[in-house]
Computed example of a mutant assay.
Amino acid sequence: MSAIHFFEKGQGQPIVLIHGFCEIGEMWRDFAEALSTDFRVICPDLPGCGSTPIASDSIQMEEVAVLFEEWMEENNIHNPIVIGHSLGGYVMLALLELMGNKLKAVGLFHSSALADDEEKKGMRDRTVIFLKKHGVNTFVTSFVPPLFPEERREELSDEITQAIAQAKNCSLEGLIAFTKAMRDRKDRLEVLENFSGLKLVIAGTEDGAVKIDTSRKHKSAVTDYFELEHTGHVGMIERKEETLKIVREFCEKVSRSET
């Protein structure tokens, strides 16, 4: 049996929402509640995050994809719409490469199909060093607030506090493992381009983690592309109603399609 922990709500067309780095499945709770009126929404914890264990501080995206394929089979999650936030998008792309048209539709939420450039790889290496020296709590307390636009941090202070609290449920091994996995992941833009199902990208113009110029390189590869003005890296929190509407309408479109 798979060790992947998850919660689910609702019935119907399955939607798998995969959280990002320094996040847990619980971050999708409001989305799951809202979408569960029409869909079966499943929100897993990645290995080393929340209640899903991880065996070491090393893992590859391809290994996570295999774990997720097994987990979906065990839990009768067939032809799902899979949407990933940030790191969750990288996992989705590895899953897409593995499963192809066994996925019904896919989405990148503040994420990218491109590999890290050398500058970003260097930043990942420094993150591993920082994590090993200072631990989870110190790291997430400094990492999470800059994901939000500076001018909205006071307004969103309660949401930032909650995000930090959730991030503290990630293990040191999990954060190190996924930092290295993000650094080492391969370019999967062609995988995304070749997928025949509907494809969604949601990007933030003020996103410091996935720059808007990077997101715009995906326009020709997807069927549905949205930019959120004055939005950082966590649009599902910063622009909850707007992004929920985008995701719902995309999923409804998928359900109406024959792909």
Rank of each mutant, 00 (worst) to 15 (best):
L156P: 04
F139H: 03
R152E: 13
E151Q: 15
G232I: 08
E238V: 05
T141D: 00
H218F: 10
A34H: 11
K211Q: 13
P44R: 12
N75P: 06
V201S: 03
D30P: 06
E151H: 12
D57R: 07
F130E: 05
R239S: 01
K211A: 15
A115K: 14
L98N: 14
M123A: 11
A221R: 02
T259S: 12
E238H: 03
T223F: 12
L46D: 05
S51E: 15
K253Q: 12
F148N: 02
K104M: 11
S220Y: 12
I81Q: 02
E155A: 12
A115W: 03
R216W: 02
Q162K: 14
S112E: 03
G20P: 13
W71G: 11
P145K: 01
E249G: 07
M1C: 12
N75D: 05
T138F: 00
N194V: 06
P80I: 01
I59K: 00
R239N: 14
I202W: 03
N101I: 11
V136S: 04
L175G: 00
K133W: 02
N75I: 09
L131I: 03
W28Y: 04
A167K: 03
F7W: 01
E227T: 06
D117K: 00
E173H: 15
S196W: 00
I81V: 15
L35V: 10
A94N: 13
L98C: 06
D125I: 01
K199V: 08
E193L: 07
G25F: 06
G135H: 02
I4Q: 08
L95D: 09
D125K: 01
D207G: 12
P47I: 12
Q11R: 12
L98Q: 15
L108R: 06
H110E: 09
P53E: 08
E238Q: 06
V140M: 04
L200Y: 08
L156G: 05
I42D: 00
S56I: 02
K180H: 02
S86I: 08
T37P: 00
E69Y: 10
M236A: 12
S215R: 05
E159H: 07
F130R: 08
A209C: 06
S171C: 13
G12F: 08
T214R: 11
R216L: 07
P146H: 04
E70K: 15
C43R: 10
E73K: 14
T141Q: 08
L46A: 12
I4K: 06
K102F: 07
R239D: 07
E150I: 13
S111T: 06
S157C: 06
D116H: 05
S257Y: 10
P149N: 03
T52S: 15
G10E: 11
V66T: 14
S255W: 03
T141K: 09
M236E: 01
I59G: 02
I202N: 04
D45W: 10
K121D: 00
F250D: 04
A55M: 09
V144C: 09
T214Y: 09
D45I: 09
V64I: 14
F226H: 15
G135E: 04
L175T: 01
V210K: 11
D184A: 08
G122P: 02
L114W: 07
M236Q: 10
R216E: 07
G174R: 07
I54C: 03
L98A: 14
L108D: 10
D45L: 13
S56M: 05
N101M: 14
K180I: 08
S51P: 01
L228A: 10
M27Y: 05
M99Y: 01
